[in-house]
Design a binder for these strands. Structure first.
Lengths: 150, 150
DNA sequence: CTAGGTGCAAAAGGTTTGCGGTTAA
DNA sequence: TTAACCGCAAACCTTTTGCACCTAG
């Protein structure tokens, strides 16, 4: 719950971009950092409303956009599903479970990434790596199911 | 333009899924293979209409969906922009230019990919690697611009 | 004080769907 | 012959926008 380290990071990041600190922005950032998961804008809205029932979805979108601009959070997209947001700013990939829909962070070996980037003339600013498949829980469940049904 | 190799691949892939061959599906597949680029559904529609003026956008979407299901084409998403479609089924990544918006295929070294995948319990079925930055043309143009303006 | 932010409701934009008529196998 | 497919238009869903009011600095 809202530790002061997060608040400081938010303060200085906003100040660095000439943006104001507002209660809405603080709360949006807080719920993202508290859970450390990958909620949709709608889910963020739901969580923030528990602490500020009047906040609108549009404001949540606005806040998320500013936080992304400040480099405080990342936007994670899975095909055309709702965007998800993520407070982990270390370079990492994502794993999307095809059954339960959960999103997991995947650490990446740094040197490997450089080998992948296109050479000759391209200037790479950023990359995304997304894996899909079955998470440990769903994978295990499916195996158990197969065992049962033959 | 519409070579018979493509047609054969389409025929057998559709048959394999119990789907019919229709003129619409053939044309959608054809324009994708002919150009070898990464058009949006809307752009595919525009191209196909040159050969079949009555085809609807909804049908193009339906055809694209079936072709993806058949494993004949891939859907390529860049954040929440329009989906793009790609006839190159080899395992590869994509580079999106932040200036001109063009999409380029990026070959990937196979052994590198295995090193990236999450271990312990995850079952990886698929992955996407997307790079962003400046393509050779835009990169060069920007460098030239900087030289001019100091 | 006032530029920037919020809340609301409506619009936008891409994609999907329901339905009556058409067609490949 | 008939299940699958097409074209159309309307629905859908996420995200963005315009505007009047509010508030942090």
């Amino acid at each position: 719950m809202g530790n002061s380290q997060n608040k400081d990071a938010l303060d200085s990041a906003l100040a660095g971009k000439g943006l104001r600190m507002t209660r809405q922005r603080a709360l949006v950032y807080e719920v993202l950092m508290d859970e450390g998961d990958h909620p949709t804008a709608d889910e963020v809205h739901r969580r923030v409303r528990r602490k500020m029932p009047t906040i609108s979805l549009a404001t949540v979108y606005n806040c998320l956009e500013k936080l992304v601009e400040c480099g405080l959070i990342r936007q994670v997209n899975r095909d055309r599903e709702s965007s998800r947001f993520c407070g982990n700013m270390r370079e990492h990939g994502h794993f999307h479970c095809n059954i339960c829909g959960a999103v997991f962070d995947v650490d990446l070996a740094e040197p490997v990434l450089e080998q992948l980037a296109p050479k000759r003339g391209f200037r790479v600013d950023h990359f995304d790596i997304t894996f899909r498949g079955l998470c440990p829980a769903c994978s295990q469940e499916q195996t158990a199911g197969n065992r049962r049904t033959g």
